[in-house]
Design a protein around this nucleic acid. Structure first.
Lengths: 161, 161
DNA sequence: AATACTATCTATAACTA
DNA sequence: TTAGTTATAGATAGTAT
């Protein structure tokens, strides 16, 4: 007789940790399936008390592959990719007007991502490595991130006005 | 009679898009369950040809909450250092051996996280906004990130040697 | 702690409207 | 197309080893 899962914080710590590891594993498997079935890239990040630092869902090789993919894309609007990418670019051209409308939301999400990134840096370097050199670098980066957010906001404002 | 799922790229585009949306929805639901059941924070990012920009798994409120959480952690740590700097340092010293053991793994995962966020930055700025100004800023940031990774590696090497 | 089992719940590919 | 249904595969909490 199994009871239906009650969707609430599991008080038992041992059971909670087991469930965390089981479900995290399943989640990563699901992500792998999704990327294979649909030909996309996806990843997950887990911030838990079970590990001193955030866990990510992908292997170093996979992450490197994603990096290379985006780097290659950035070299040019290259249609050399695959049929998917070519049709995607054509789709992008025909849909460019709609994209303009989405800029504001996009910009908003980007800034959130940047803030998450800032937090990640602060959390990792200040709490774990505690180095003045690194803190200074983080400070410089935060400045650059603010500059980027400002520039993006400016572009957004110009695009939507 | 249902056949077992064949784990391969779905050639039919309509079916692939349907599957993508269904599975993405389920994945986000799973993430919500995991965060509720285990009291953690987690998020996912999807880079697909179905959308012009990466999709994220969380609401604005949720993202803001995670940001604040990490910001508070940093502030709390700073406050502790000011009020009770000596005992904090003593605590760090007693724990330093354990931390050293973790440094290599931590450093590896940190660099993975940094690379993921580099991809995020590149994807968002280069493909969506396509601005030379932003590209230059991203380039500068990437240089800083490499510098940080290098410094962290150096610290790691010194600590473990 | 880890590993395996299993009764039950959940996800979903194909199907239908 | 988009939405709803269903038959089956898959996930998993509790339990046993």
């Amino acid at each position: 007789m199994k009871k239906k899962l009650k969707l609430a914080f599991m008080v038992n710590e041992a059971a909670r940790k087991i469930t965390y590891n089981k479900r995290k594993k399943s989640l990563i498997k699901k992500i792998d399936e999704l990327t294979t079935l649909c030909g996309i890239d996806a990843g997950a990040i887990f911030y838990s008390d079970f590990h001193p630092e955030p866990e990510v869902s992908h292997s170093p090789q996979e992450i490197q592959r994603i990096i290379n993919k985006f780097k290659n894309c950035s070299e040019l609007e290259k249609g050399k990719k695959k049929q998917n990418h070519e049709s995607y670019l054509m789709h992008r051209i025909t849909k460019s007007k709609e994209q303009l409308v989405k800029l504001e939301k996009n910009n908003w999400e980007m800034q959130n991502s940047l803030m998450v990134y800032q937090c990640l840096l602060q959390e990792k370097f200040i709490n774990t490595l505690n180095s003045n050199v690194l803190n200074n670098l983080v400070f410089e980066i935060n400045g650059k991130l603010e500059e980027i957010a400002s520039k993006a906001n400016e572009l957004d404002t110009n695009a939507t006005s």
